[in-house]
Design a protein around this nucleic acid. Structure first.
Length: 303
DNA sequence: CGCCAGGTGCTGA
DNA sequence: TCAGCACATGGC
């Protein structure tokens, strides 16, 4: 099956490679991965449809053999219904964010499955992206459902129940380290209904974050990532080492606490601060990785 | 080898 | 509140 849809103001590459999702692989000019399809099933995450995605100009092509995947699922996952030009205009308020937008225009904040998002970011703490990807891949291979497609082999993300039933030592073997008990406990809470992620999309940011923070191994940063990438809380502004680095641009010398940085972000970028965060995150990371291709500005400038 | 990685929980001022 | 510290693991 082939779904083709209009996707203006969209960069598939920036969206999938900016670090918000860990399970996409680029191969032969296409991106292979999974897109949530159909209704949310409590305690099981959503059904995952294996797909091959390509973009030419403003058209997005999604190929799949999964009949459950609809064009609406795709639009929703890639947030194509969001008025991106308006969002970018609202956050384009200083020199640094302006440069980030110029470089990565078309990056959209995905609407990921909240459970996969929570599990992934529990794995992310005190860890690097390469290794996070490896852990998640091994988890999926071990406990997800295999799906082959056009020479691509992958597995869907495991359900909370299957992780909850996995011994801690087994999770450690997969590379979880000290995060193993955190992931297992979170999975148990979701599987037995003590934590209803499906309810958190409907409540406000503060309430959703407070609920997420009740999980062991979930702190300020992970809760913000889940709120932003999985629960559509666009004011969430996750602050990690890279963002703290980016924030030095605004705080020049002065040492700022996370709380101060959050306050600043809220005042600077407003209700789409999360979009600003992801543009800045991708910008400073790629700038650093490319070693001096881009020279980060050291002085704030207004636009 | 040492350093670092999309942090968090715990402890003691 | 906030600083200081331990924490598993592997890529570089």
């Amino acid at each position: 099956m082939r779904l083709e849809l209009e996707a203006a103001d969209f960069s598939l590459r920036d969206t999938l490679e900016c670090g918000q999702a860990f399970r996409w692989t680029a191969k032969h000019g296409a991106h292979y991965g999974f897109i949530p399809a159909g209704p949310a099933i409590h305690g099981a995450g959503r059904h995952n449809a294996a797909v091959r995605v390509t973009q030419t100009d403003s058209r997005l092509v999604v190929e799949t053999v999964d009949p459950a995947l609809s064009a609406e699922d795709v639009r929703r996952y890639f947030a194509l219904d969001v008025d991106l030009p308006a969002v970018l205009t609202s956050i384009d308020v200083d020199g640094q964010i302006h440069a980030a937008i110029e470089r990565h225009r078309g990056l959209r904040v995905l609407r990921q499955d909240p459970w996969e998002c929570l599990a992934s970011f529990i794995c992310s703490s005190f860890n690097n992206i390469k290794r996070i990807q490896g852990i998640i891949e091994r988890l999926s291979q071990a406990y997800g459902e295999p799906a082959a497609f056009n020479g691509f082999r992958g597995s869907s993300f495991p359900s909370p129940g299957s992780i909850a039933d996995t011994p801690e030592r087994r999770l450690r073997q997969l590379g979880l380290g000290f995060r193993a008990p955190y992931l297992r406990r979170a999975a148990k809470r979701i599987a037995d209904g003590r934590l209803r992620l499906d309810h958190l999309r409907a409540v406000d940011y503060a309430s959703a974050k407070a609920a997420l923070l009740t999980c062991d191994g979930v702190g300020d940063k992970v809760a913000d990532c889940v709120a932003l990438f999985g629960l559509e809380k666009y004011e969430a502004f996750p602050i990690d080492v890279w963002m703290a680095r980016a924030m030095r641009y605004y705080f020049r010398r002065r040492k700022a606490t996370v709380k101060q940085m959050h306050t600043f972000a809220q005042q600077q970028y407003g209700r789409y601060a999360g979009y600003a965060q992801q543009y800045l995150f991708h910008y400073v990371r790629t700038a650093r990785l490319q070693t001096s291709d881009v020279r980060l500005q050291s002085t704030p400038t207004d636009v």
